[in-house]
């Protein structure tokens, strides 16, 4: 596997006996415990990071199941009430002919969360074992996961606005369902999962493999 780091004579702060503050970036000798500039605790590597990642990820998955099973929206129109789930909402949009919007919601509520579960799990496994992707590809994957995760909140906001706008007593009203809440929780948990991943571990693993 190509390791760009070794060939170009680059070394990490850890190999140089230094630790960079995770908050402000200042370098300290590796034995220091607190940053002298911003007083954040110093940690060269978070070896418990995969454990935290798994914990948040599983919590996120647990919240994601009810988010798909229970209704996201309860619409009552002239006395009749209908409930729609995430998938149901996408279907409705397609029936109304808004395929583009349906694609956005489908992407934000289904593709991104499911993709994220797999991507984070893959990254967490890859720092513990050998990986098929090289470290550049995995780093890219990590950046994409970090950037894209928040966008899953779109559907929660859609529910919030719809229920605020459509409140006409008996004529028509839209109310949030329980799934809106579990979906929001699931997004928060997976965001925390991605944040607790220590990206430096991606680069370390390949290095030790190389040295062996």
């Amino acid at each position: 596997m190509a390791s760009t780091g070794l060939g170009e004579g680059l070394i990490t702060a850890r190999e140089a006996g230094l630790v960079a503050c995770g908050r402000c970036g200042r370098l300290h000798p590796i034995a220091e415990n607190y940053c002298s500039r911003c007083s954040a605790p110093l940690e060269s590597r978070d070896f418990e990071s995969p454990q935290k990642v798994w914990a948040w990820l599983i919590a996120g998955l647990v919240a994601y199941l009810p988010a798909n099973i229970y209704p996201m929206l309860r619409t009552s129109q002239l006395g009749t009430s209908t409930e729609s789930t995430i998938v149901g909402g996408v279907m409705d949009l397609i029936h109304h002919g808004s395929v583009g919007i349906a694609a956005i919601v489908f992407f934000a509520s289904i593709v991104i969360p499911v993709g994220k579960f797999f991507a984070i799990a893959y990254l967490a496994i890859s720092v513990q074992r050998k990986s098929l992707l090289n470290q550049h590809q995995r780093h890219k994957l990590y950046e994409v996961v970090e950037f894209v995760g928040r966008w899953s909140m779109i559907d929660v906001f859609v529910v919030a606005i719809l229920s605020a706008l459509v409140q006409f007593d008996t004529l028509a009203s839209i109310n949030p369902g329980i799934a809106a809440f579990s979906f929001a929780i699931s997004v928060v948990f997976t965001m925390l999962s991605a944040q607790s991943f220590d990206a430096r571990l991606i680069w370390d693993v390949d290095r030790t493999n190389h040295a062996k």
């Binding site: 954040a40 919007i101 956005i104 919601v105 909140m153 906001f157 859609v158 606005i161 965001m191 944040q195």
Partner: peptide, 29 residues
Amino acid sequence: ALAEFLQPWSMAEIFIVGVAVALIKVAGL
């Protein structure tokens, strides 16, 4: 440090996309 910590949790831009989706959903109604 607080501002840096809050960055991923400030979701104004996502809200705007949510508004756009909601507008299209009620446009027929």
